[in-house]
């Protein structure tokens, strides 16, 4: 299957820094199933073909995190972890952080204040 170039995603913007992929979710409130399906497809394309196992997902644009999007992130985190990486989330609004705490996922994901701290944490974990 032909790889989708990193610049051709719609629901995410991806930059690479060493072996870490920094991913921004572009949709402030992905509630439509079509939006959620696209996000799942694009994150899968990034994680499943081995292009990125260590991810930082920057949520600064996200105003609203419905359970359908949370489910996508949980599945992707597991896939990334199976490949020796994982997902760190950063720049969460307080209400988004609360949603993750309520659902017990603040321990499933690693949460960081910003990209710099998330990158430093990946650096400490090594490859």
């Amino acid at each position: 299957m032909r790889r989708q170039p990193l610049t051709q995603f719609e629901s995410i913007a991806v930059r690479k820094k060493g072996d870490v992929a920094i991913v921004e979710l572009m949709h402030p409130r992905a509630v439509d199933p079509a939006d959620v399906a696209l996000l799942r497809k694009e994150l899968s394309a990034l994680v499943e073909d081995g292009r990125a196992a260590k991810l930082i997902i920057n949520l600064h644009r996200v105003q609203f995190l419905p359970s359908a999007v949370i489910n996508v992130l949980v599945v992707m985190e597991k896939k990334a972890r199976q490949q020796g990486g994982g997902i760190r989330l950063c720049r969460l609004r307080p209400e988004i952080e609360e949603v993750l705490k309520i659902t017990g996922l603040d321990k499933w994901f690693k949460l960081d204040v910003d990209e710099e701290l998330a990158l430093a944490a990946w650096g400490r974990q090594g490859s």
Binding site: N71, V74, V75, I102, T103, G104, W108
Partner: peptide, 17 residues
């Protein structure tokens, strides 16, 4: 959905919220 056994299950989080 906060039970580690079910944390990967796609159901229950919406209801909990």
């Amino acid at each position: 959905p906060t039970d580690p056994e079910h944390i990967e299950s796609p159901t229950g989080r919406g209801l909990m919220l």
